Simulated assay, not measured.
Amino acid sequence: MDIGWLESFLALVEHGSFTRAAEAQHVSQPAFSRRIRALEIWFGEPLVDRSTYPVSLTPAGVKVRAGAIETVAAISAVRDEIRGRQRTPRGAVRVAVTHTLATTFFAQWWASCSDQGPVPCVLLPSNTLDAYDALLHGGCDLLLAYADPALPLSIPVADVEWMVLAEDVLAPYTSVTGRQPDFSLPGTAAHPVPMVTHSQGAFLGRVTERILAERDLHLLPIAQSDFTSGLAALIGAGMGVGWLPGRLVTPQLADGTLQQVGDSSLTASIEIRLYRVPSDKVPARAAGIWHRAAGLAADGS
């Protein structure tokens, strides 16, 4: 077994494509494919269904992913400690955070939960499903993620506890020129509105699809990414309309570089939730953060 095989496998899970995963690891696609095949030979079963796009995991692949996340993290920590480069704070709370919340919500919220003195933490940015998987399999202590009350994730929520910390709104935005929006909705069949969007597999992409399924809009997709801040930059550059969380675009709304378009029927209310496994399995410091967060949520802070 080569630990690099597991790292390549996790890259494939993250990117959903052999080509994109190989590029992310800075190796050729044939070399990357050989790593995945070597791992499958080692386990004795196919781990990836190559007939789908994005690629999907076989039942064996799902099991391997859970173990790979924990194994790679543990081996990396031991390596860093041996090399004298261990920088992880002692007793740190490991918090998996979806990428958008890592840049828009986490810092101020964590400081509020640590008002009696800094609480050491390790911030683990991730997508929603991988972060939830890490929570269930011990890869983190807490999970901070968006949730759509109208579109529950197909995950075993009975295995965790959660609370709502705050709310946000997913809405369509456009760039602005001379105080006028560059694009407007709904568009027409002859002149569809350019659209930048998340993939349908991403959480915010699924929420956007739910909104669009109920509306008669004329849109022309021209750019796609699951990196929400990157989409916001594309929208700001005048590429088209895109659905973004309000907390992310607050600065651009304030300085007039972005503007919401359409009416309230094109928006969706989403929640910012904190998750944990049953309380008897949560480390003491993480439990303290949980109780402090519950108090802040109850106070409306």
Results as ranks from 00 to 15, higher is better:
87 R>E: 13
94 R>Q: 12
91 G>D: 12
71 T>W: 00
39 L>M: 08
17 S>A: 09
21 A>I: 14
56 S>A: 13
87 R>I: 13
28 S>E: 15
13 V>C: 09
73 A>T: 06
12 L>A: 08
66 A>K: 13
26 H>N: 14
96 A>E: 02
72 V>K: 01
29 Q>C: 03
22 A>Y: 03
61 G>N: 10
56 S>T: 15
97 V>N: 02
39 L>S: 02
17 S>N: 09
15 H>K: 11
82 I>E: 07
78 V>L: 10
45 E>L: 14
70 E>T: 14
65 R>V: 09
70 E>W: 01
19 T>G: 05
47 L>F: 07
64 V>Y: 03
82 I>Y: 02
53 Y>K: 15
77 A>K: 09
90 R>I: 13
52 T>V: 12
47 L>A: 07
37 R>G: 00
50 R>C: 08
33 S>Y: 10
23 E>G: 05
34 R>L: 08
52 T>G: 01
67 G>R: 04
60 A>M: 14
90 R>V: 14
53 Y>L: 13
78 V>D: 08
29 Q>L: 02
83 R>M: 13
57 L>D: 03
79 R>K: 14
68 A>G: 03
86 Q>K: 11
61 G>Q: 05
79 R>W: 08
96 A>H: 04
70 E>C: 03
30 P>K: 04
75 I>A: 10
71 T>G: 00
81 E>R: 15
76 S>P: 00
88 T>L: 05
50 R>M: 06
67 G>L: 01
66 A>Q: 14
64 V>F: 02
69 I>P: 00
87 R>T: 15
33 S>W: 08
78 V>F: 06
31 A>E: 08
84 G>M: 07
18 F>W: 09
30 P>E: 05
72 V>C: 01
82 I>F: 02
52 T>D: 08
33 S>A: 15
66 A>H: 13
29 Q>G: 06
62 V>S: 07
64 V>K: 01
57 L>I: 10
44 G>P: 14
15 H>C: 05
99 H>C: 04
35 R>C: 01
93 V>G: 05
25 Q>W: 09
71 T>A: 09
43 F>M: 06
76 S>C: 03
96 A>D: 04
52 T>Y: 07
74 A>V: 04
51 S>G: 12
88 T>Q: 10
37 R>T: 13
22 A>M: 12
43 F>R: 08
88 T>R: 12
53 Y>D: 12
59 P>H: 02
89 P>V: 03
88 T>D: 07
37 R>N: 09
81 E>C: 05
40 E>R: 03
23 E>H: 12
34 R>P: 00
19 T>M: 11
32 F>H: 04
50 R>Q: 11
24 A>T: 10
88 T>V: 14
41 I>H: 07
81 E>N: 10
62 V>G: 01
86 Q>T: 09
70 E>M: 10
56 S>I: 05
33 S>K: 13
79 R>E: 15
15 H>G: 02
45 E>F: 09
74 A>N: 05
33 S>L: 09
88 T>C: 01
43 F>K: 05
56 S>G: 09
32 F>S: 02
42 W>P: 00
19 T>K: 12
31 A>K: 12
74 A>Q: 10
33 S>E: 11
20 R>I: 08
61 G>W: 04
77 A>D: 15
86 Q>P: 00
53 Y>N: 14
73 A>D: 13
70 E>F: 02
95 V>H: 02
29 Q>P: 00
